[in-house]
Write a protein that binds this DNA or RNA. Structure first.
Lengths: 353, 1287
DNA sequence: CAATTCTCTACCGACAATATCAGTAGATAGGAC
DNA sequence: CCTCTATCTACTGATATAAGTAATAGAGAATTC
């Protein structure tokens, strides 16, 4: 298979160094990346590279970065990388690239922590490296693309929050329907992409369905494994993701790549009862009727204003309509507790000094 | 905990794998015995083969039975009856914990045995003998025959006590037990039979009964006096052969009896006094009306300690006693006052004139309080209930519909609903036990069967109260808002129920054996029998944790079912559950919680709960009985040492107690427990006044409604803003809820204080596992904060004298915060402020009263009151003071370290040496740091330049203090950063961090420099702990249940208290209850030690065990000299007049403690204790030893046809040593010729270094300890001259 | 094995995860002979 | 009557839970990335 997207300028750069593994897994095999990119057909979505800004989180050793860059030829390609060793690599590589191509790839290394919200504020507001335009939510933002690799255990948390941001339309999603191409462990992706009724369906999956449009793009497994286990079959059939092998992905951590961007939906109603959803989804196979009294003072009373068939189903089975129905009932419920009472305390560490 | 369970599961897996492999190999060996050789055989050809093989053969016992035995504690009595649980004899043999040589026994199946015992006792005490028998039979399958006899005798004892059981039936049961359970009777069994015969068979022939047994056996039989009882012993005494039969301990009683028998005793007629005008102490109610304003919070529980009401006849006795006592008083006015009925007991006591009167008064009061204590235990909660009922009825009169407005009325409503439900459930349980239940096999009944035998023991009415009180008390604990951890709730309810059950059981105890109708007879014998009947203080009693939790869950779930609150919003009103069960996610883990309805919480906040009535949480109005074993006597049921669920700690302490090693510990504790206190009424009034304003005052938080929160951010605000908001809000809420619970806690304390005004009270103490002493009653004690401490006075007063007056002034200066100056200056400080002192005492409420600005204002005010009173006398030195004056060690941990290490400069800085002024170690360390920075500043270090003028004692104090506890760099960094925070604005976080990092390193360096030797000792302790916790016992086998690293750090204090660090990695087990399935982390006595904690904990724990020892020694010494003594770890208290004596003893005892080289002694102790342990160390693969060891292992591998394990290596060494120590010269010879890996390492002459690098090879060597670091030059005797050592 | 990732970070008093589901081993019942 | 299989149950181990990681930095334990 041809490496259509491979930037020859990188050939030497990659050859010069040994790829390092630093906590976050990534594809190191260009052939795999090529397969994935072929499946994604990004050029169709972003035909005009001269207007496109790419923000990439945790580019790592840069195989994917360089190839997606070569594919789309963006105006800006920001690499947010916080691992000092990799920062050094990039600095060196970009210097070299300057010599080879004059950095017509438009890479900029932004050596900050992609986990930190402040990084994005500084990128656009303080350092003004890029200044995205705000577009309407009618269609996907065609001048801004976010690529992120969160393929390690703790990445799940940030992915969940990013999905939440689509509902709130804040963070980068304040600029419009910004597509996020996200790499994460299959364990995470299969959870967040599951549909109602699937065993792994959880709160974030529900929010994902409600607030975003999403698609499973690819599954990359170690060649010792069979890719795609644990995903909701409906998603696999619907999205027809690319299945590829890459042995830089460890056997224990399959990688899933999916995209999401805000859907038309945004509402305060879900945030208002977020504190209810959390315990609700802890017993996600228990019928709502039994859960209600366990999540809020007097919660059993809320049942009166909900249809029976909904009460008999469990959170795992809830569709977005169900959730909205519950949100509505909650809104009308007279016994909503004070906001103070809904705040959960975390561990109190009392230091004596 | 997920991690732990994963770890242990994978660990189990690998072990299971080994277990699966091993048998095959051994079978293979056994079948081909002639061809192949075992390890040992190959090494010692001449050794008797069978003996070498035996241990290996037994390794393959992995029976199913064992597997199911661990499930036994989850089974109900009927399931146990139907299932067979039998452990192979080998597995019943006791093991050991950390050390083979300590002779502390680890009982296999301890939890299962305990459960069966509880069940059996439960049945047997209600005459369900046929239900109890199968349990006994199951027990016989789990324990050794000797152990079994003990349990069988418990069963038989019940039969003997039951009059309906005949001798024949008894003998039949014994017969059956012999047949079915391999019961081996002993002399206690004989005593049981004897008793039954004596009591039921008029024609019983003692001669015949004792014809066959040997004389020693007869004597041993008769020494079971608790079984035989007084009257039966008299019968035996009457027998002509009695003199030869009776054991030595009964000789004296026998003679007394014999003597009295022949005397005509005139029966004393009761001389009960007529009840003319009994003097009763001022009623608490009157006082409350006098002094309490029922406005804000501090609501008086009427009869809050109703139980402290005595029965009328006791009042009469007390009254006449007092009349008798004051008969000879000279001051008529005082006499008048005492009989007026307007004084409380303490005020009466103060008016007495002679020591004799006081002694008599104390005696009378002690008798009186004994009865009151009993009443309190029996009817403790009754008072609360009456109050609830009253308010309920009042409320009902006003409103037709109950509302949450009145909390107590609400509680009563729940109580009323709960009781019938519990009664019904109890009946169901009874039916189930009687096999009368309609659907015996239903799943409901299956669950019921687990708790039924215990449920039926509980009085529903009392339990209803207990449940409500406990649950309400726990609101907002455990980091859960408006609720509590389910585990905590179920456990405390369960424990409280257990307490009720035990007290009830004790009050109903069969008195037959300890009473006699004879007026003549032997008092000695009576005492002997009564003592014996109290039982062995080293024997466990009560329910296991599982039982009480499960039971607690049943009660809590019933409460949750019935408890409702009425809620209204706008125009809607409805009834909702008061409690609900919920799962919360805290700190990455799910926590089961019982939450209160938010409206209920608001109601509680408004009215503040008065839940204190439960006697187990109270100080004692009577002197606690002296400690003489693992469990306390009398009302004190707590163990001597708080063992934190560590079976090992408990076992070590019990063994020490049984061996009689703890007398010195008891002595110290008893001094603490015998110190009588009373409540300072003057202070109470002032606190009460400020409390009732409802405003914040000093350390009392004000009444708070709800926290004020800033407006919520918009949905579309940046996540960082939302996050910051959430963080702020949680912090506000958490601050709010700590304030609230502080106020709640203070309320609780004040209520107890109020109840004890004018009363005499005691604090029985017990120990933590290091030996530090704590009062057992948890809330109201002298360990509390300033406010709580200020409420205490010694019951006894002592005339100040010159010195006492001086010390009282010093005490005030110390409390005021003027404690860094020499004594004379402190005295002067107070004398200069004497007007302020008087003014404070005279008018404590004035806006800017002097006392309010003190460091510890409440206690300072207390001294002000005292000083003012003293100075009102013509001669203030004649004033009788009840104040406790404190002498505090200056950085006590460092004092001990300095003494151990002998650091000259360090010792001086913590006042071990005499100095004109008290030395301040913090300031001194700050000085060193400053010098270090100065040097760097000259090199133009920017951090040094910035920081050098900002170093003061405050900056270094936290780090110096926590250094003793082994604070790490990162922890200290956080402290320093906090101290430096003010110098850096918010946007310079990075700079702050860098400066803090720089400074922390230098603070560490400074401490290290000052206490160089001490640090070497700290390191030595740490290293020793590391080696111990990574060591392997010689008996280690892969197939065993004993973990690879199973030795904890254990040491013995100079007072012989064994200290066992309880840190082991547990396994999580789940316990299904009526409320939820709990996950309980259980530690196994032979489980893996938590090396990290063992190492980190040992240095501080060892030093704390030393300071505890010092305290106990001082306590005992002060006690011997007639001083009253109390302590808060490193703060020692006594009367002002006695401070000099105490100070002398503090120093004497310190010198005595440190006159031996404690670390060398510790090393010797370790060497003995861990002599059977081996160290796993890594040596360089290039080390010459590696080659020979590898060779030997290869040789063995070939012969055994499997890889050599650690267990194999140890087995070989074990065999070698066994042979070496045998008497058989052939074996000795064989052992000498035998080579093992360990022997190779042991005999290696060169250097063996534990390297932590790559390219290493792990070998076993005998456990050795590092050399003790040399001591510095400081001579500990100089402490005797130090003025400010404790000051 | 050695390399890499994860965890924990100040002592004691006063500790503490839980629900669910899939898979498996063992038990029971049932049916045929 | 015995054996064999189908079905059920009990038990175990794995997994998900939430959704700022929190400002650090170095050793030690646990995996195998």
């Amino acid at each position: 298979m041809s490496l259509r997207s491979f930037n020859p300028a990188f050939k030497q750069l990659f050859a010069d160094r040994k790829p390092m593994r630093l906590h976050i897994h990534e594809m190191l095999n260009p052939h795999t990346v090529q397969q994935v990119l072929d499946g994604m057909r990004l050029k169709k979505l972003y035909p005009d590279g001269s207007k496109l800004d790419i923000i990439e989180c945790n580019p790592g050793n840069g195989v994917f970065s360089s190839m997606v860059n070569y594919d789309l030829k963006p105006r800006n390609h920001i690499l947010i990388e916080s691992r000092t060793k990799l920062q050094q690599h990039w600095k060196k590589d970009l210097q070299a690239l300057q010599g080879i191509t004059g950095n017509k790839e438009n890479f900029t290394l932004y050596p900050r922590d992609p986990y930190d919200w402040q990084t994005y504020l500084d990128l656009t507001d303080k350092d003004k490296i890029i200044q995205p335009v705000t577009k309407s939510y009618d269609q996907v933002h065609d001048e801004l693309l976010l690529i992120a690799n969160w393929c390690y255990d703790r990445g799940e948390k940030i992915v969940a929050q990013w999905i939440g941001c689509c509902g709130d339309r804040n963070w980068l999603q304040k600029y419009g329907k910004v597509r996020v191409i996200c790499m994460a462990p299959s364990k995470t992706v299969s959870k967040f992409l599951s549909e109602p009724g699937f065993g792994k369906r959880n709160r974030t999956a529900m929010k994902r369905e409600l607030f975003t449009d999403s698609k499973l793009l690819a599954i990359i497994a170690n060649s010792a494994n069979l890719p795609g286990e644990g995903y909701d079959p409906r998603v696999l059939i619907r999205d027809q993701p690319v299945a590829a092998y890459d042995n830089s992905i460890p056997k224990s951590t399959e990688m899933g790549i999916f995209e999401f961007y805000p859907s038309g939906m945004t509402t305060d109603a879900i945030a208002e009862m977020e504190y209810l959803l959390s315990p609700m989804y802890m017993n996600r196979s228990t019928p709502l009727r039994q859960i209600l009294p366990k999540i809020v003072s007097g919660g059993e009373g809320m049942a009166e204003s909900l249809p029976h068939d909904l009460l008999d189903r469990s959170p795992r089975e809830f569709t977005t309509e169900d959730i909205l129905a519950i949100a509505h009932a909650y809104d009308k419920w007279p016994f909503k507790p004070d906001y103070v009472d809904t705040i959960q305390l975390d561990e109190i560490d009392e230091s004596q000094f | 905990m997920l991690r732990t369970s994963l770890k242990s599961s994978s660990y189990r897996r690998s072990r299971a794998l080994v277990q699966r492999l091993l048998p095959q190999i051994q079978y293979a060996y056994i079948n081909t015995r002639s061809e192949s050789k075992t390890l040992a055989q190959s090494a010692v050809a001449v050794s008797p083969v069978s003996r070498l093989l035996e241990p290996l053969k037994s390794e393959r016992t992995e029976s199913n039975a064992k597997h199911s035995i661990s499930k036994l504690t989850q089974k109900s009595f009927s399931e146990i009856e139907q299932t067979e649980f039998t452990a192979p004899a080998a597995e019943r043999q006791p093991g050991y914990y950390s050390s083979k040589g300590d002779n502390v026994i680890r009982q296999p199946f301890a939890r299962e045995i305990n459960y069966l015992k509880s069940l059996m006792e439960s049945f047997v005490s209600d005459q369900y003998y046929e239900k109890a028998y199968p349990l006994l039979k199951t027990l016989s399958g789990l324990v050794t025959p000797e152990e079994f006899t003990k349990f069988a005798n418990i069963y038989l004892e019940a039969l003997v006590q039951d009059e309906k059981v005949s001798v024949r039936e008894l003998e039949q049961v014994i017969d059956k037990m012999q047949r079915e359970c391999h019961f081996e009777s002993n002399n206690r069994t004989r005593a049981l039979r004897l008793t039954k015969y004596l009591e039921t068979d008029p024609k019983f022939d003692l001669d015949e009964f004792f014809r066959i047994p040997k004389i020693e056996d007869i004597r041993s039989t008769l020494s079971n006096v608790d079984i035989i009882g007084v009257d039966n012993l008299y019968t035996i005494f009457d027998h002509p052969k009695a003199q030869t039969w009776i054991p030595s301990e009964l000789k004296e009683s026998y003679h007394e009896y014999d003597l009295n028998k022949n005397k005509e005793i005139v029966e004393d007629t009761k001389k009960l006094q007529e009840k003319d005008g009994s003097i009763r102490s001022l009623e608490k109610d009157d006082l409350s009306e006098l002094e309490a304003v029922d406005s804000f919070g501090l609501q008086i529980v009427r009869h809050s300690l109703l139980g402290l009401e005595a029965s009328p006849d006791k009042i009469a006795v007390f009254t006449s006693d007092i009349k008798e006592i004051i008969k000879d008083m000279t001051n008529e006015e005082s006499k008048q006052k005492i009989t007026s009925g307007k004084l409380n007991y303490f005020e009466m006591y103060q008016l007495l004139e002679t020591q004799e009167q006081r002694d008599q008064f104390n005696h009378a009061l002690a008798n009186f309080n004994l009865d009151r204590q009993k009443q309190m235990e029996i009817r403790g909660v009754e008072g609360a209930k009456e109050k609830w009922k009253h308010e309920y009825e009042e409320t009902k009169k006003r409103d037709s519909i109950m509302s949450t407005k009145n909390l107590n009325a609400q509680l009563y409503e729940w109580y009323q609903k709960l009781v019938p439900l519990l009664q019904k459930e109890r009946q169901e349980c009874l039916d189930l036990i009687d096999d009368k239940a309609t659907n015996q096999k239903s799943s409901e009944n299956k669950e019921r069967a687990v708790y039924a035998p215990f449920f039926v023991k509980i009085d529903p009415e009392k339990a209803a109260m207990t449940t409500i009180l406990e649950v309400m008390k726990l609101q907002s604990t455990g980091g859960i808002s408006n609720g509590m951890r389910a585990l905590t709730a179920l456990q405390s309810v369960g424990k409280a129920l257990e307490y009720d059950y035990i007290t009830q059981k004790l009050s109903k105890k069969d008195l037959k054996r300890t009473q006699t109708s004879k007026h003549k007879g032997s008092r000695l014998l009576l005492n002997l029998v009564r003592n014996a009947a109290e039982g062995d203080p080293n024997e466990d009693f009560g329910w296991s944790q599982d039982i009480s939790i499960r039971l607690g869950a049943v009660f809590v779930s019933f409460l949750m079912e019935v408890a409702k609150v009425r809620v209204s919003r706008h125009t809607v009103e409805t009834e909702q559950s008061a409690f609900f069960h919920s799962i919360q996610y805290i700190g990455g883990q799910r926590i089961g919680a019982i939450k209160l309805h938010s409206d209920l919480v608001k109601s509680i906040n408004r009215s503040s709960l008065d839940s204190c009535v439960q006697p187990q949480h109270m100080p004692m109005p009577v002197k606690p009985k002296d400690w003489d074993g693992y469990y306390g006597r009398g009302q004190v049921m707590s163990p001597l040492v708080r063992v934190r669920d560590s079976p090992e700690t408990a076992a070590y302490v019990k063994t020490a107690a049984r061996n009689g090693n703890l007398d010195q510990v008891y002595a110290g504790l008893n001094v603490l427990g015998n110190t009588a206190w009373t409540v300072n009424k003057d202070i109470f009034k002032v606190i009460s006044h400020y409390w009732n304003t409802g405003k914040e005052f000093l350390d009392i938080p004000g009444v708070l409604d709800k926290p004020i929160l800033p407006p919520k951010p918009e949905r579309s605000d940046d996540p960082s803003i939302k996050y910051k908001y959430r963080k702020l809000v949680t912090q506000l809420k958490s601050e709010f809820s700590t304030m609230r619970s502080q106020r709640c806690d203070a309320n609780y304390k004040l209520e107890i204080a109020r109840a004890f005004i004018g009363e005499k009270l005691y604090f029985p103490h017990n120990l933590d596992f290091r030996g530090r002493a704590y009062p057992i009653s948890p809330h109201f004690n002298h360990l509390g904060g300033d406010m709580t401490r200020s409420l205490f006075l010694f019951w006894d007063g002592k005339e100040l004298g010159e010195r006492g007056l001086r010390w009282l002034k010093i005490q005030l200066a110390n409390l005021y915060g003027f404690d860094k100056a020499p004594f004379d200056e402190r005295v002067k400080f107070v004398e200069d402020n004497l007007q302020n002192v008087f003014e404070s005492a005279k008018n404590p409420y004035s806006e800017d009263a002097w006392w309010k600005k003190a460091d510890k204002p409440w206690q300072a005010l207390g001294v002000c009151f005292d000083l003012r009173r003293a100075y009102k006398l013509p001669d203030p030195t004649k004033y009788v003071s009840h104040m406790a004056v404190h002498q505090d060690g200056t950085c006590n941990g460092l004092q001990h370290y300095a003494a151990l290490g002998g650091d000259l400069e360090g010792a001086q800085q913590v006042n071990l040496a005499r100095a004109d002024r008290p030395q301040d170690v913090y300031a001194y360390v700050a000085g060193i740091v400053r010098e270090l920075l100065e040097k760097d500043a000259q090199k133009n270090n920017k951090y040094a330049l910035f920081l050098k003028d900002k170093i003061n004692r405050k900056v270094v104090k936290p780090t110096v203090m926590t250094n003793v506890y082994g604070v790490t760099y990162i922890g200290a960094l956080a402290q320093v950063r906090k101290q430096l925070e003010d110098y850096f604005p918010d946007n310079q976080r990075d700079s702050l961090q860098e400066h803090a990092r720089y400074l922390t390193t230098h603070v560490f360096a400074a401490i290290r420099q000052l206490f160089e030797n001490a640090h070497l000792i700290q390191d030595w302790l740490g290293e020793s702990a590391r080696r111990i916790s990574k060591s392997v016992s010689i008996d280690y086998k892969e197939s065993d249940n004993v973990a690879l690293h199973s030795s904890a750090v254990i040491w013995t204090t100079p007072l012989n208290l064994p200290c066992v660090q309880p840190y082991r990695k547990g396994t999580s087990e789940s316990l299904k209850t009526a409320v939820q399935t709990l996950t309980i982390n259980r530690i196994d006595g032979a489980g893996m030690v938590d090396g990290r904690k063992q190492v980190a904990g040992f240095p501080p724990n060892f030093v704390h065990s030393l300071d505890a020892t010092h305290m106990m020694m001082t306590a005992a010494a002060c006690g011997e000299r007639g001083l009253k003594f109390a302590s808060v770890h490193d703060s020692f208290w006594t009367h002002a007049a006695d401070v000099d004596t105490m100070n002398e003893q503090i120093r004497e005892q310190f010198v005595k403690l440190h006159s031996s080289n404690l670390i060398s002694l510790l090393k010797e102790e370790f060497e003995i204790r861990y002599k059977d342990n081996y160290q796993l160390i890594k040596i360089s693969s290039k080390h010459p030893l590696v080659k020979s060891i590898k060779e030997l292992k290869q040789q063995w591998t070939k012969q055994l046809n499997r890889p050599i394990t650690l267990g194999d290596e140890l087995y070989m060494e074990r065999t070698r040593l066994e042979f070496l120590n045998s008497d058989d010269p052939q074996k000795i010879k064989a052992a000498q010729d035998m080579v093992t890996t360990i022997k190779l390492a042991h005999e290696y002459e060169g250097e063996i270094e534990d390297v932590n690098d790559r390219g290493t090879y792990e070998i076993l060597i005998p456990l050795k300890f590092p050399e003790v670091p040399p001591k510095g030059e400081f001579d500990v005797n100089r402490v005797k001259d130090s003025l400010y050592f404790f000051s």
